[in-house]
Structure formats: C-alpha cells, structure tokens
Simulated assay, not measured.
Amino acid sequence: MLELHDITKRYGDRLVLDRVTFTVGRGRMTGFVGGNGAGKTTTMRIILGVLAADGGAIALDGSPLTAADRRRFGYMPEERGLYPKMKVAEQLVYLARLHGFGPATAQRNATALLERLDLGERANEPVERLSLGNQQRAQIAAALVHDPEVLILDEPFSGLDPMAVDVVLNVLKERTAAGVPVLFSSHQLDIVERLCDDLVIIAAGEIRADGPRERLRREHSEDRTEILLSGDAGWLREVPGIHVVDFDGGWALFESDSEEARQAVLNRALRHGDVVNFGRQQSTLAEIFKEVVK
C-alpha cells in the first residue's frame, strides 16, 4: 500500500501542506476531495516526485518510495498531456514502449484499452480531432497502458458524460480487483461517493477526515430515523421521546431520545398499517464535506 506520513510543503512563508498523512490500500479506491487550492494536486505531485516535500516521508508496502517504484506508477494529470497531432493508438504504443514493453505487447495493451474504453473506432485519429470527453478517455488509457502497480488520477471524470463515466468506473474497478491501489481526486462528489472505498478530505493543506467511506458516513451522520408509511404519519408527534424534524403525509424524519423510543415508533407503525421504509438516515458525502471543511 501507499503511505504518506506528515508531508509538509511550503512556498515561501505560505504553508501549502501541513503534515498530510493518509494511506491508499492495495485493491482500494481512495477518493481525494477538497476545494480549489486545498492541496490535492500538490500532494499528488509530491507522491510522483514532480515536487519535493519539505518534510515527511512516503512509503510503498512499508519501504521508502524510490524513483524505480515511481516508474511503475500510472498518472493522469488534470491538464491535457497528450501530443495533439499524434494518432491515439500510436501514442499509447509509444508510451508503453517508453516503459520497456516490446512492440507486440505495447500494441496489444493499447488495442485492448482502446476497445475497453470505447475508443476502438478512434484509434487512428489524431488526439486533437477527438471530442473533449474522448480526449479524457485517451488520457486515462495513457495512464493504464503500461499496467501500472499504483494509479494516481487527477480529476479523471472531468468532461465525461454519464455513459462514459460508467465505462471508466468499470475499468478502474477491474484494476482495484487486481490489487492496484488507486488514488483519484474529483470535484464530482456523487461519483466519489459511488466509487470510492476510502475517502480523504483535505482543506487548507490539512487532512480533515479520512478512512473507509461507510465509517465516515456513520461518524458524521446525526442520529435521525426516516420512516415512510402507506398511511398518514401524523401520530408520530404523540410518541414520547420523539422529536419530529420533518414531516410530509406518510413520510417523516425524526430524532429519538433512546433506542427504546425509536423501537416504539416502529411497533406503533406496524399496528397502523404497512411500513414502506424505516431506517437511520446517513449523511451524504457532500454533507460530510461541508461539515469538516467549514
């Protein structure tokens, strides 16, 4: 796994990263989120060795990260980084060859990736003739063509329509299933919430929250219960120990003073008629993000 320990970075008197610490596990998809200028891209560039940290250390599988390790990484920058006048397939083959692959293997990897990312029909077109969404897919292919052992992706879903997002998601899930650690940043919190196993939230150069997605949702969710009945739920206000937060016909959101009071609601609801839904309400990633960065 990839481990960051107390990474610090300054530009003059400005502290850009303040003891940044988190882990990207093997076979885990880690979403890295934060506002503009929070420090996401700087952190990624330090991982890749493009920038030098002023303090801290990075380890891969328990050993200090080396230049040789980084050559086995796949990176997709937020900015377009492909040669615009070069054909897509030729470019992927060229990049694979730079990583030491022979001509046949490089061609095989490029062809397979282009087909997998629905770019097979565009293989012999120059990058500049592709739509922005297809250029983004080609950029992702370039990060994957050498079968990297670690993936670092900066805004990989930018400019993709919903269908293309699903295609890319499936490709990335295949990589994590093979044990590859994947760190990706995105402003599209709904995609991060749907995709990531773990979450790292950064603000003003500090890690504000990190860990498994579901654990963070539990930790940052208020103890509220949502109920949906086939009939009217107005009687809920009469139950001792219950405080109704919101109400609309057969739907209500409430807080309870105790688990006994919560169960009393369920028992009474079952006596009144059909219970369509009854469960604790969990915070969305957007709500967690607003809470920890404010």
Rank of each mutant, 00 (worst) to 15 (best):
M1C: 11
L2G: 02
L2V: 09
L4S: 12
I7K: 02
T8C: 14
T8E: 07
K9H: 10
K9S: 03
R14G: 03
L15M: 11
D18A: 09
F22T: 02
R26Y: 04
M29L: 15
T30R: 02
G34F: 12
G35H: 08
N36T: 13
T42C: 09
T43S: 07
I47R: 03
L48E: 01
L48A: 05
V50K: 07
L51Q: 09
L51V: 04
A53G: 08
G55M: 08
G56T: 04
D61N: 12
L65I: 05
T66L: 07
R71G: 07
R71T: 09
E78R: 08
G81F: 12
V88R: 03
Q91T: 06
Q91A: 03
L98W: 08
G100S: 11
G102P: 00
G102H: 02
A110F: 06
A110D: 03
G120S: 11
N124R: 13
S131V: 13
N134F: 10
A143K: 06
E149K: 15
L151S: 02
I152K: 06
E155W: 13
L160Y: 04
L160M: 07
D161T: 11
M163G: 07
V165K: 04
D166I: 13
D166K: 15
V168A: 01
N170G: 08
V171G: 03
V171P: 00
L172G: 00
L172P: 02
R175M: 07
G179N: 02
P181D: 06
V182T: 11
S185G: 09
D190T: 09
I191D: 00
E193W: 01
I201F: 04
I201Y: 00
A203M: 08
A204E: 14
E206A: 13
A209Q: 05
R213P: 00
R215Q: 15
R215A: 15
H220L: 08
H220Y: 15
D223H: 13
L229C: 06
S230D: 12
G234M: 09
V239I: 14
P240A: 08
H243C: 13
V244H: 07
V245G: 02
E255N: 09
D257R: 11
E260R: 13
R262L: 10
Q263P: 04
N267D: 14
N267Q: 14
G273C: 06
V276E: 11
V276Y: 09
N277Q: 14
Q282G: 07
S283P: 01
T284I: 04
L285M: 03
L285Q: 00
A286L: 15
E287P: 11
I288L: 12
K290D: 06
K290M: 14
V293T: 15
